[in-house]
Each structure stands twice: as structure tokens, then as C-alpha cells.
């Protein structure tokens, strides 16, 4: 029996996971990079929220801008400093680089801020609950669903209607040929990182919104979710990532309800086992997409 509360819960969780997965797959599509530093963009956005809200006491809209901007900037800077020079090297070199970038950012925050968690003040609306047709749900669950709908519509307009979007889709399919159309390689790659950072930043507001705190390893959990959601949905198209995010949210909620209390701590392990088993039968994920495996040369 599906009640409204379960539905809203699943939709909001799925929305958050879809945003996370989408940001990861955009960069993957073009650079064929599994970006281990992606979680750190979320973490840095969290610290952006912390500084602007708790330390600087800016108004709520300014803190959100500040947090998202921090993620976008970090994403772009990591592309410039680390990924661009390694881009033409082997696929493993690229992955290891992203892992090193991730470790670097975590430890930089550890050194510069503190190993301890910091409390993030979010606008009071995040902690309120509302009653819809008998179902009680936190307002932030509705906010994330609304935000995700807006983001997905804007993203699809960007990818379908603008030249930049068309060029990014083309680059994900045939990178060298796209350059032969006169599209600068650095333009599409930087654009992918910037949008990826943007999505990480937006997702971070809601991720941090659940715990109201941030620490240097805040990024690990959302990174994993994005990983699993993308491989499950399909690494080869943005649609796959979004579908994967929602399926993951559903699976998570089902496991939370059905697993006995003694097994709940194994929930993540169960999730991964299910996903790995699924991949054995369908390695390309739920959605087969158009991204090819051509590497950026």
C-alpha cells in the first residue's frame, strides 16, 4: 500500500539523488571521467553555506548563492589546475587525479578550518513541517521536489535549445569530431564542470539541510549515491542518471521499511549488492544512452 507520505518521501529523496547523479554524469559524458572529487564540491558548498550563514550572517538568499558559487568555483578550478593537464593521459590517470584532488580538498579543509563538524544555519523553513491531505512532511522535501523540477526543465532547455548544449551533447558522443566543427575542447569541458558544480551546489543545500552541519568528509556519502545512481540508471546519458537517482531513492526507502531493525546497518551493503547484481545482467544500466567510450585525445 502506497501512502502519500511514502510517495513524497521517495520523490524528494529521488529528486536529491537525481540532482547528484546528473552533476556527475555531465562530466563523465564528455571527459569519460569518474570524478571522485565531485563529493568535495558538495562539501565545499556546505562550507560556503557555513561561512556565509553562521560566520558572516548574510541573508538566506545570499548564503545560498554563496554556497552554490563556492561549488561552481571549486569545480572550475579543479578542472583548470588538475584535470586539464591530465586530460590526454590514460583513463586511470584521470581517475587517480580526481581521487587525489578529493583527498587534497578534504585535507585542505581539515587544515584550514577544522576536523570537527560545523553547524550550518539554514532558513527556518527548512525545519518546518506541513500537513498535506493527512500526510506530515518537512517543507524541505517539497522544496527539493520543486527545485529539481525547475532544474531539470532548465537543463533540458539548455541541452536542446542552446548551441552550447548541442555542442556538449555532441562532445559526449564524438569529441574529436566536435572540435572539427570549431567547438573549443576547453569550452565544453569547462562548461560541463561549471554545470556539474552548480548541480552539486544546489544539491548540497538540501543535503546539508537534512543534518544542518558540515565536516571535511561530508562529501563521501553523496558521492557514493551519485556513483551508484549513475551506474544503475546508465552512465551514458543524463536521462539515465536522473532515472537512476529516482530508482535509487525508491530502493532506499523500500529497504528502510522492509529490512528488520537488526539489519538496517547493512542497508548500504544491501543496496550495493543489489546494484552489482543488476549490473551483471545489464551492464549498461537501465537507460542505454548515446555516450560513446571515445576518450578525449
Amino acid at each position: 500500500m502506497i501512502d502519500l507520505e511514502f510517495l513524497i518521501n521517495t520523490l524528494s529523496l529521488g529528486s536529491l539523488y537525481a540532482l547528484l547523479a546528473l552533476g556527475l554524469v555531465l562530466v563523465y559524458g564528455i571527459l569519460k571521467l569518474v570524478n571522485f572529487a565531485y563529493g568535495e564540491y558538495i562539501m565545499i558548498a556546505g562550507y560556503g553555506l557555513y561561512f556565509s550563514a553562521t560566520v558572516l550572517q548574510l541573508p538566506w538568499w545570499a548564503t545560498m548563492l554563496f554556497g552554490v558559487a563556492a561549488a561552481v568555483l571549486t569545480s572550475y578550478l579543479t578542472e583548470l589546475a588538475a584535470f586539464r593537464p591530465v586530460r590526454t593521459k590514460s583513463a586511470n590517470a584521470l581517475i587517480v587525479t580526481s581521487f587525489a584532488v578529493s583527498i587534497f580538498l578534504q585535507n585542505a579543509v581539515l587544515i584550514l578550518v577544522s576536523p570537527r563538524a560545523r553547524a550550518v544555519q539554514l532558513p527556518p523553513i527548512f525545519s518546518k513541517t506541513v500537513n498535506i491531505a493527512g500526510a506530515t512532511t518537512p517543507v524541505r522535501n517539497l522544496l527539493i521536489i520543486g527545485t529539481t523540477i525547475v532544474v531539470l526543465v532548465l537543463m533540458s532547455l539548455l541541452m536542446k535549445k542552446t548551441v552550447l548544449g548541442i555542442a556538449m551533447r555532441a562532445a559526449a558522443e564524438k569529441f574529436t569530431t566536435t572540435r572539427l566543427m570549431g567547438v573549443p575542447a576547453n569550452l565544453v569541458i569547462s562548461a560541463a564542470f561549471i554545470i556539474s558544480g552548480l548541480l552539486a551546489g544546489i544539491a548540497s543545500i538540501f543535503w546539508i539541510g537534512r543534518s544542518s552541519s558540515v565536516d571535511p568528509i561530508t562529501g563521501a556519502a553523496p558521492l557514493l549515491i551519485a556513483f551508484i545512481a549513475t551506474v544503475m540508471g546508465g552512465m551514458h546519458s543524463p536521462t539515465g542518471a536522473v532515472v537512476g537517482g529516482f530508482v535509487y531513492g525508491l530502493l532506499f526507502n523500500i529497504l528502510s521499511i522492509t529490512l528488520p531493525a537488526s539489519m538496517i546497518s547493512y542497508r548500504d551493503a544491501f543496496m550495493f549488492v543489489i546494484v552489482v547484481l543488476f549490473l551483471l545482467f545489464r551492464p549498461e544500466g537501465i537507460i542505454k544512452g548515446g555516450y560513446t567510450e571515445e576518450r578525449v585525445g
Partner: peptide, 25 residues
């Protein structure tokens, strides 16, 4: 055996997830 069938990026992520499963256990 199942893990070795997955190549490239799905393979990387699956191996990573496997480490996490081992850690959880």
C-alpha cells in the same frame, strides 16, 4: 568473476562499491 566482466568506468565504480561493502561488513 562477476566483477571482472565489468570494464571501464562501471568496473571502477563497482570495485569501489565492493570496498565499501567489505568495510560495512
Amino acid at each position: 568473476y562477476p566483477l571482472m566482466r565489468l570494464s571501464d568506468f562501471v568496473g571502477v565504480i563497482t570495485l569501489f562499491a565492493t570496498l565499501i561493502v567489505i568495510h560495512v561488513v
